[in-house]
């Protein structure tokens, strides 16, 4: 378990030589990465480099087969855990394409999720009144109207609403580690700022947390400034650097990297 005295440098996520395949096709080919508490990492890379596969493997999506390597999350063997156990351990994935669950209101969904989390942590769940207060407060921080909470989960939401809804879930569930998969896609400039503020606050208010953003474009990084930028190509991290690396990539494209 975590060593409280060493929180600042505590490695939250340690990926070592990870290999994974989908439908028998190798996608991750020896990926290694360590994310420490209090830090924000970004992974960039061309289409098909394995960015979303990494997110899905970490979250435990069925159909993604790990063929080698290891992943430790907060000291535990992540790959041995069921998807919901990973969630309870504090791993959160903000989906690239959040699915709709018609008929189940957003409010009900969030309440069920929070109750499941409380149960897993052997805590007393919030009362309905406490929950509603927290939910309304968080929703308004994200500029989400009250009727939004009564609608079916992601049902008929615009692209921007879906993404803001992911951030709403993240804030309520208060995980240790947030994995943002292309959270900037489908967002207009205003929504991007709202989401960016949400994520910044998430790390700033608790330095034991960390964020790993997966993105195709540099623009999200104007709002959430990463400590480390990694470039993923053909299933491996081929380059790591500071935020300057993202700007260089934006300017020169990924082709520049391959030549280097």
């Amino acid at each position: 378990m975590s060593d409280m005295a060493n929180t600042a440098a505590h490695p939250l996520l340690e990926i070592d030589d990870l290999h994974a395949e989908v439908d028998g096709k190798a996608i991750l080919k020896g990926l290694s990465l360590t994310v420490r508490a209090g830090s924000v990492h970004a992974i960039m890379g061309p289409n098909g480099s394995g960015k979303s596969t990494l997110a899905n493997v970490l979250a435990g999506k069925p159909g993604y087969e790990v063929t080698g390597g290891s992943v430790r999350f907060d000291g535990q063997d992540l790959l041995a855990m069921e998807p919901e156990e990973r969630a309870h351990a504090g791993l959160f994935l903000a989906f690239q394409y959040p699915v709709e669950i018609p008929g189940v209101s957003n409010m009900e969904f969030l309440k069920t999720a929070m109750e499941a989390a409380a149960k897993a942590r052997q805590e007393t769940p919030l009362t309905t009144a406490e929950f509603m207060k927290k939910l309304r407060g968080t929703a308004s921080e994200l500029d989400l109207a009250a009727d939004f909470l009564k609608r079916g989960v992601n049902e008929g939401f615009s692209g921007g609403e879906k993404k803001r809804n992911e951030i709403l879930q993240m804030k309520l569930l208060a995980p240790k580690f947030a994995l943002l998969d292309e959270t900037d896609s489908g967002l207009d400039i205003d929504a991007l700022a709202v989401v960016g503020n949400g994520v910044n606050a998430f790390v700033d208010e608790d330095r034991t947390r960390a964020v790993l953003m997966i993105t195709h474009y540099q623009r999200l990084l104007n709002h959430i400034v990463p400590d480390v930028v990694h470039v993923l190509a053909d299933g491996r991290i081929v380059e790591s650097g500071d935020k300057q690396l993202a700007l260089t990539l934006e300017e020169r494209g990924y082709a520049w990297l391959k030549r280097a």
């Binding site: 919901e84 969630a87 009900e108 069920t112 499941a116 897993a120 569930l173």
Partner: peptide, 18 residues
């Protein structure tokens, strides 16, 4: 079901909720 699992809701509870 995966969305629910990722939010910590097990499959049985998820199906019942849906």
């Amino acid at each position: 079901l995966f969305l629910c699992a990722q939010r910590g809701i097990d499959a049985e509870k998820a199906v019942s909720m849906i």
